[in-house]
Design a protein around this nucleic acid. Structure first.
Lengths: 199, 199
DNA sequence: GTCTATAACGAGATAGAC
DNA sequence: GTCTATCTCGTTATAGAC
């Protein structure tokens, strides 16, 4: 068995471990709220070694978003491929957010959206792309559900998609100070009921 | 005319100017994303002078929340006192969020909710109190509207209030990377339509 | 790939003069 | 109240040995 992929500095096991730790730190404390020292301490290597894998914090940040967006896109693709009613897909979509909050984390790009003005330029573009892709997928799901009659909503699918994303991101945000998942659970249930057409 | 109030350090014109600048910085960059140096540069005094008014950054942060929450509570009280249908009050409530975002700002406590785990303890409690008070007021408004028949919604007023807060905070959050107010405008319009009982 | 060592800078904070 | 001066520590980042 041959390793086909050429290992680039950002594609080693250590790099992955760095990304894992940094990802959690950003989702919990924000991009301005963690440092290379935090990662080094947790991983048990020096700060200097981190710079071998990710020369600057901005590049680390960009890699974080890229990987997160790819994983998110994979999850959406997996949901989209299921042969189930659109209402079930919407429920699965909500479950992604629930799973993130269950680990006491904010959505990575939700966190970065808050800090947006403090981010280095390369990271900014990646954040916008995340929300764009999410919006396109969600709008298409809503259209599909509307055509099939399994989803009901007023206005355009664009408007409805924005409402769903805002509700879920906001519910995660507001849940954080309370240290539990009650607000998100309530909001997600209400969303599903609303779009399932319960008067 | 005599000044009745005894001026405490945190109650002078300079202190107010500091709070104004710091408030905008937190709402745009986050609490971890600004420093005493930023305020000093903008106000034209030294960092040392800032420490006379607010000995530590944590105390400055706590004062920011206290003042913001008081102003927010005043606005809610003013809305509550109007002799108009509950639907109009909900619209006025949404207008508060619109006005904040129009200044390219995130809700102060929404920003701090994201950064919650990175905040000093005294600030954490104040953030929770903000959301608690907001929730109590909003739930009462929904109950009032439901009784009067001017607001229609499924589930409890508690659940509906959480949904509204989450939708508006999340809409502000998602709007930020796009640099405009379109998402919030769309979400607010949709909320008002939904709670006004449009099928 | 990881280390030690250090540079270069910015952070929050204090002492004491004016 | 504001200043200069300074402290201490944390931050990102680099050089060069192993």
């Amino acid at each position: 068995m041959v390793e086909v992929r050429q290992a680039s500095p950002a594609d080693t096991d250590t790099a992955t471990a760095i990304l894992d730790i940094a990802e959690r730190l950003v989702q919990r404390r924000g991009f301005s709220g963690f440092s290379y020292a935090d990662i080094a301490a947790e991983l048990g290597i020096t700060k200097a070694s981190l710079h071998y894998h990710f020369p600057s914090k901005a590049e680390l940040g960009k890699s974080l978003i890229t990987r997160y967006a790819a994983r998110f896109a994979d999850a959406l693709g997996e949901i989209g491929a299921r042969v189930v009613p659109a209402g079930d897909k919407l429920e699965a979509y909500c479950a992604i957010y629930r799973a993130v909050l269950a680990e006491q984390r904010m959505c990575l790009c939700g966190m970065l959206a808050a800090e947006y003005e403090a981010l280095p330029e390369p990271m900014r573009r990646a954040v916008v792309e995340f929300f764009d892709h999410n919006h396109v997928w969600l709008s298409a799901l809503l259209e599909e559900g509307r055509r099939a009659g399994s989803l009901r909503f007023a206005g355009t699918s664009d408007q409805a998609a924005h409402s769903i994303t805002a509700a879920l991101e906001g519910a995660m945000l507001v849940s954080r100070p309370y240290g539990n998942t009650a607000v998100l659970a309530s909001v997600a249930d209400r969303l599903i009921a609303e779009f399932s057409g319960e008067a």
